[in-house]
Design a protein around this nucleic acid. Structure first.
Lengths: 331, 331
DNA sequence: TTGTAGGCGTTATCAT
DNA sequence: ATGATAACGCCTACAA
């Protein structure tokens, strides 16, 4: 039988109300009873029942982290950021993914809120569309959107457009004119923004966007990259550089396939990735890429949601983090 | 104001007890009232308050996943396994890490149990020692240990010894006699088992264990590997092969440093890793390694804990999964 | 400073 | 088949 407030109260000769106040550090308790109660609590090794407490306070003490797919290394990295600064925070993290589920993220969020499972949420939302996002604002549970911009909700994201511009401009400056662009999962905001940046950089150099130079990778892996390489190779006039907003693994796939076919990287084909994953350092040549501050995004997100829950912050806040262009060897 | 059982009861002209029974699909309810109640519930878009339910049923409906450090890709992979089969399961996953925390995993588990936050737990426990593990068995909350053997608790782990033997034997068969071994975080069970396997394989070939050939990497990354390479290079007589139970990233660091110094891999130095991470496919030469079925471990763990919680299983169960030796190019 | 009393929203045990 | 009623363990006015 677990020990309850009542057990402590009986031994201390007070009521459970008093014990409760002691446990919660409320003022106006005499030092004597405070000490006595605390001692007994310790002796009995009392732990408050958080469920009962939650029922009384109408708070669950936990934050939901909703991700599309935990298989994505990008998502994992953000989660790591969340958890690592979550250390000093009294909220518990509940993890949900929506892939292969009948519920959309919006429905899931709605349910979690109404069931009172969570006090707040962090949504990694690159794949969620605007209409869905509207649902979130209607609930009384606050939510921070990570990895995409959003008018109606707090958000923390990265300047994808600028990051893509940096990469493309770099290539342009190196003398490349025919630069291919490899996307994936087109249509989500971050990817769209990156293509925008690519386009803008070209425009600055008076180069018109050539839709035939934009390729869509089937997936975010090396095989998809290898497949895309075929298509790039077939281009006429030949392309001398590829910018790969689809992600580093695709870029690595392109590099490896190029080498296999005897195309020198970066000599014959310069390759720039997006994200900066660990493998970017192991491929040869090492991958030049646009780094996203993933841990930082998680860090901001958890801090923002907690500020909101503690009432330190209201109104909608947006935080834009900066990408960083990392020059290595592949371009 | 959220809608409650009482709200539904009033409109339906019954008591909340009846509504509760309908919601929970209890028998002995007339079709008429069942239908009526269900309709009203739907109209009002009722969601049960899980906290109140938890107080009444004395269940939280959630499983705690306790990990030492989410920064480890090994841990993440297991977590992915857990979550991906968690899809069809009605338990919620709460995530806890212990790094940088004042609580040990044992203390954390104890608190979570007593506070009634979790109904069961999965501990990724390669780093937890035997004494600590004893605490777990004392709580009434069941726990599955992943990634290490354990007498007192259910466990799912990998045959590290066999995996290491496979790797070492392969090297031996290739004619290598002076085989270095690179560990890290020595002292935890999986690592110890791997060294055992290495030793046993040598013994089968009548080679005595040479402690000077065992190196301890400072960390699980490329830099640590590069540092170890220095030491390996200095060995006399020279070593022609390295087995790296420390992990693939360390192995990759060794390969890259070797190449930088003009030592051919696998020509002059054969390298075998442990784990099989994505980067193992991108390094050149591609890494020969011992694959651990990480997703599968997570999968087993979540299934075991749920079986236990649903009362389908009692007694202590152990599940040993098999490693697989993957021959690629580095050995 | 402490006790009394009621409520948080469900479930569960009896009756009826 | 349904209704009363009492938990579940904690919090919080309000009263004393």
């Amino acid at each position: 039988m677990p020990v309850t407030l009542k057990d402590i109260a009986e031994r201390a000769g007070v009521t459970s109300a008093t014990v409760s106040m002691v446990i919660n550090n409320k003022p106006n308790i005499s030092e004597t009873t405070r000490k006595k109660v605390l001692k007994i609590a310790k002796d009995l090794s009392y732990y408050p029942n958080v469920i009962a407490r939650g029922l009384a306070t109408r708070k669950s003490g936990s934050i939901g982290v909703i991700v599309p797919n935990l298989a994505s290394s990008f998502v994992v990295r953000i989660l790591q950021g969340i958890k690592s600064t979550n250390r000093d925070i009294e909220y518990t993290v509940q993890l949900f993914d929506t892939i292969g589920q009948k519920e959309s993220e919006a429905q899931l969020f709605q349910r979690l809120s109404r069931e009172r499972r969570i006090d707040g949420a962090i949504l990694i939302g690159a794949t969620v569309n605007d209409d869905e996002l509207k649902v979130f604002a209607d609930e009384s549970v606050p939510c921070i959107v990570v990895a995409r911009t959003c008018e109606t909700l707090d958000s923390v994201y990265v300047n994808n457009t600028q990051g893509a511009m940096d990469a493309t401009k770099y290539l342009l400056q190196k003398g490349h004119a025919n630069i291919a662009c490899v996307t994936t999962a087109r249509g989500n905001i971050p990817m769209t923004d990156r293509v925008k940046g690519y386009t803008a950089a070209l425009a600055e150099h008076n180069i018109a966007l050539n839709q035939n130079l934009i390729f869509d990778a089937a997936d975010d892996d090396m095989d998809a990259g290898a497949a895309i390489f075929e298509k790039i190779l077939a281009c006429d006039p030949p392309v001398s550089a590829v910018f790969v907003p689809a992600g580093d693994m695709v870029a690595i796939g392109i590099i490896k396939e190029a080498k296999k076919r005897g195309i020198a990287v970066p000599g014959k084909l310069a390759v720039v990735g997006f994200d900066d994953i660990p493998a970017a350092m192991v491929v040869e040549p090492m991958l030049t890429t646009v780094r996203q501050p993933k841990l930082e995004m998680g860090d901001y997100a958890i801090n923002m949601i907690v500020d909101k829950l503690e009432g330190r912050e209201s109104g909608i806040k947006h935080k834009e983090l900066q990408t960083k262009f990392i020059v290595r060897e592949s371009a």
